[in-house]
């Protein structure tokens, strides 16, 4: 059961990673990268690492995404490619 959940999570995580790099809009790429971190934090919980999961959820998917959003909000019009 847990194994199937882990497998599904990893497939979704890899799909989100590809989307983060290949989607035309930079904003959606950044959000997808945050999703990768969020799924990684669930994977850490399954791998019995709650400390790491908390850090990844707070830093990887929270602050990191905010930093990317601050920066791309400063790029006038260059949010493609």
């Amino acid at each position: 059961m847990l194994l199937a959940l882990l497998a599904i999570l990893i497939v979704v995580m890899l799909a989100a990673a590809v989307l983060a790099l290949e989607h035309g809009k930079l904003l959606i790429g950044v959000i997808a990268a945050g999703l990768v971190s969020l799924i990684a934090s669930v994977i850490y919980v399954i791998l019995a690492a709650p400390d790491v999961a908390m850090t990844e959820a707070a830093i990887g998917s929270g602050l990191s995404t905010i930093m990317f959003l601050y920066v791309i909000s400063r790029l006038k019009g260059d949010t493609h490619g």
Partner: peptide
């Protein structure tokens, strides 16, 4: 419990944001 300085610091920084 799970948690500590890094996690708590990140949560505080989220509050600052």
């Amino acid at each position: 419990s799970p948690g500590g300085g890094f996690q708590g610091g990140a949560i505080i920084a989220s509050g600052t944001v």
